[in-house]
Design a protein around this nucleic acid. Sequence first.
DNA 1: ATCACCCGGGG
DNA 2: GTGTACGGGTGAT
Length: 732
Amino acid sequence: MKGWLLDLYPNENEIVLWVKNDHGIKKVIDSDFFPSFYVYSSLQDLKSLESKLSDDTSVKSLDYEKKRLWLREKESLVLKVTVSKYKRLKELANNIDESGNFSKYQLFNVDLSFPLRYTLYKEIFPFAFLEINGKINLLDDINSIDYDVPELSSIRIDVEINARDRIPRYEDPISKIIMDDIVLEGEEKELLIELKEIIEHLDPDIIYTNGGDKYLIPYLFYRANYSKLDDFFLGREEDSFPQKKGRSYFTYGQVKYKPPMYTLKGRIHIDMMNSFLYQESGLFGLIELSRISRIPIQILSRTTPGTAITSIQISRAFKENTLIPWKKNLPEQFKSAKDLFMADRGGFIYEPVVGIHENVVEIDFSSLYPSIMVKYNISPETVLCNCCRERKVVPGLNYNICKNIGLIPKVLEPIIERRMEYKKREGDLYKQKNNALKWILVTSFGYTGYKNAKFGKIECHETINAYGREILVRAKEIAESLDYEVLHGIVDSLWLKSNCNDHEKLCNMIYEDIKIPLGIEAYKWIVFLPNKSNEIGALNRYYGLFENDDVKVRGIEIRRRDSPEIINNLQRDMLKELTKANNKKEFYRQIPKAIEVLRDYARKVKNGECDLEELVFTSTISKKIEEYEQFTFNVASLLQLRDKDVVLNPGERVRYIITNSNSKKYLDKVKVLELADENEKYDKKKYLLYLLKAGESLLLPFGYTAKRLDEELKLTSQNTLYRYSSKKNVIF
DNA sequence: ATCACCCGGGG
DNA sequence: GTGTACGGGTGAT
């Protein structure tokens, strides 16, 4: 049969493939695939290991092969250990590593996923069009841009829960099941049977949920179990979920909570809430990445772009007969692009000139890092290579770079080209594919410096930084030579001021010099904001109005996830007034109107007219309740929830209203939204203060502190409206 | 005054 | 399958 490879996964000791075409879908089992890992050591040690392993019944075969231990190194003799039981692979690798005191043996290809092993071995990939008749025949090309995608049917499932209070629990029964436009109501057990029957009947390829991993799917199974429905499942055959708990983990200093995956068999479950890549690039973005990264779509939808880029790198290394290192122990720690630049503030960070500016353009090297990596051939095996010691080309660093093209550029260049091709085309399909690739490129940089990255090396980071810094400095010099004034600059962007309107010349000159694509956008005006504490320009706090009337806001409350709606609405409405201005002069005229907006909001808060929903803070829990040292709003919320037997994992969010900010009593200080009743009294003074501070955030460069705004707003007489007296009150 | 805690960014 | 920046603001002590 011919069809598209919808999904594949290991099951016990075989690989299951689901192949879809216009006539239906077929499950294919390959029970003749056995995974391997590799061991390198002295020949003598390998020989003794070989004889030791030959007694192990789970070892299927032991062979010697010639492989590269690292990119472009000469091939070495290694022992290939093939296991007959999938589960034994990692156990065996661990045993060997331990028996050699974690130093005698170097192990490779240990932590590769089974789908990746299988697709590399068979030279196929997810969503490939192929023919299966005893053996697999690829009728597709992984490099293809205009590949066909199967028609996929889908359904979205939501449930409503008959909860005792507003916190839904597993013990609460289902009240409603909604499947697209089908609404099921009635007795719970019947509902579940009907749900299963409808899914069997419609037989969708994709099931979309909102929170399926975290709640919906496990809940449905819990209820089915409670109703003694033992053949309840949602896949194309019985689902088996790993008994895993979700994990909380740190990223960029923030705690995230990752619920366990609920993947279905033969059907694709996409949890829209748990899929960054789906949110960013849609179904076609997922398919695009699934193909090129060889990660099955259900797994891919739940991973980060960094995982996908790693997988692509592994595939490339595999093709070049290079083994994949198991663990790495480089001392440097993971840092994101921005971190590194922040960490050593080079000459290309310009503290913003606080205040409002006209005639401003922002230039932006949108894919600076991947471009640098490709252009300057930056890769772990090219930076400080042994063969080209003389080529010390890195600006300001004593590093040499190889003349032979490295793995990272080889991987990135085709992706950049693909993306450029998609960018040229119209329509949602290409937009989604383009977005998916964008994220691959953006994250590729961070991963080169992450210590556990398969193909990472800190010197790559330093090298990329050195080039990046040089490029920004160069761009600045060119701009200044054309009489542009630099107002602000950070990482890959510069804000420039000039009376001349011909910015094309600037772009051309920079591009001619640097040969890295850049974008340019003109502002009618932009306001750079100071730190609230010291009046110095803050690197990432600004707002501005583009020539096309789009508004760009960074760093202030409206951008924060924890801000209550009322703060967001206030700043949105104040900005609405301010952005009516087409220039600096008009901007100053709009300031009093923005303050009037603030007055309206303040009045509403003062009069107790706010809906509770507007006042809700949504804050992320960073640790377990007992680990907190201070009695914060979050702690008070957690205590309230604990009374109701609800425990949140670090990384999950609480929603609360401030009822008495200064109170030391957890029941009094805040109210968790789900536990609040409609007549809950909120802390008016506190919310008023928040409003004033949010107003200050926008207007501080013009002399309005929260305190001063407070004074203004207390004016009750209608004709003493604040008179803005020109430049006297302006700090800058 | 100092420490604890939470958030951003990218597009 | 995986990661603890750094500076900003606000609140607690």
